[in-house]
Write a protein that binds this DNA or RNA. Structure first.
Lengths: 220, 220
DNA sequence: GTCTATAAGAGGATAGAC
DNA sequence: GTCTATCCTCTTATAGAC
């Protein structure tokens, strides 16, 4: 599975930012982690560090946007599904030694007031998650307003609980969030998917559309 | 109101970290913002940048630890109180142009995997909020387990919604979080406070005890 | 498209006069 | 306890050979 230099760089950058945020990751760190020489970074990403971060965030956003639908899919009760999302997140986090799961929120918190170009990128990723999640729940017969609320509450509670869990080295915040959030939606039935299989392609494009395009138009 | 150089430095550092996180704030930024010369920073904080961050976070933690009890205090129904916390947060955030409200979570996300000394500091601050909030709700007659759950869920949902709101430049995440979280607790009565006045001193000491002490014992 | 060498400046920290 | 000058390293980014 030979990946392109471009991809290797982006993967390394995403991995580093997941752990250390944006400012603390140096280009030299990316060089070391990717194996690519510094010249290649600037050849493939003339926009420098900001461009690398932008594209890495878009990629991560697409990958993690599938997470909630994937975890919810096997369930037919919304309350159970919500609980499952949080217990699954708690298990994953404990299994990885409380490392961060996703670079988007860490970077978002850091750049929201300072690097407008990355703020809009993280905003596009969040919007994609929110719109994608809402569409998914609507498709499963949740009324639109409720679908939007569940998605927003779910993403917000997850991101907040992640920070607490990582810092406290405890799964409590994730488990409590699930336990507190789920009861309100217990009994809300989810319609069976048309096919037996999840179809993640249905709602994958939103963050990419807006953010990747803007990154293409930025060469020097 | 002449404040000591020490205080001025800590205030400036907290303000900067609130906006830019930890790594992106340079000592030179603190010099500029505080007006104190670089030598004074290292005179008062021999531990350098880490020590300044640590003490700034402890101070901010104490200040923000009073926020939830203060906002909840006028209410006698837990559901209403929760809703009030989020609408108030949304108003504040919109009023300040979606600037971050508190440096603790931003820094926590950045350092959780990288600077153990600051991870333990932010953990102590979170623990203080959680223990203080739990004690406050217990005092208001909420059963202990429920009091802990509400506090954990409240803090987690707030921090997550803050990141989304700041990034999206929208109060929606805060308002939705309140709307979704509140109903589960509507009808849960809160006992009248003994005196008519809030007494914030009752539960103010926790983060300070553990974190400030450790910072004192660290002189090169 | 790969890679090295290097520029130009910012980073944290220190010494020591006052 | 205040303040300046300075050290040394690391930072992002570029130039240009291959």
């Amino acid at each position: 599975m030979a990946r392109s230099t471009r991809e290797t760089i982006l993967t390394a950058a995403a991995e580093l930012m997941r752990h250390k945020g944006y400012a603390a990751v140096g280009m030299k760190d990316v060089v070391k982690a990717s194996g690519a020489p510094i010249g290649s970074l600037y050849h493939h990403f003339p926009g420098g560090k900001v461009q690398i971060a932008r594209e890495a965030l878009v990629n991560a956003g697409i990958a993690y946007g599938m997470l909630i639908p994937t975890l919810v899919d096997p369930h037919d009760d919304l309350g159970e599904a919500i609980e499952a999302v949080f217990t699954q997140a708690a298990d994953d986090m404990a299994a990885t030694g409380f490392a961060n799961m996703c670079p988007v929120a860490s970077v978002a918190a850091e750049v929201a007031d300072t690097i407008e170009e990355l703020r809009t990128t993280t905003a596009a990723v969040f919007d994609g998650w929110l719109d994608g999640g809402t569409a998914y729940f609507v498709e499963r017969d949740v009324p639109h307003a409720a679908a939007r609320d569940v998605t927003v509450a779910l993403v917000g509670a997850l991101e907040g609980a992640f920070v607490l869990a990582r810092t406290l080295r405890s799964t409590e915040p994730l488990l409590v969030a699930g336990r507190v959030l789920a009861p309100a939606y217990r009994g809300q039935r989810l319609r069976d998917r048309g096919s037996g299989q999840p179809r993640p392609e249905d709602r994958t494009s939103s963050p990419f559309d807006s953010a990747e395009r803007s990154s293409k138009s930025r060469a020097r």
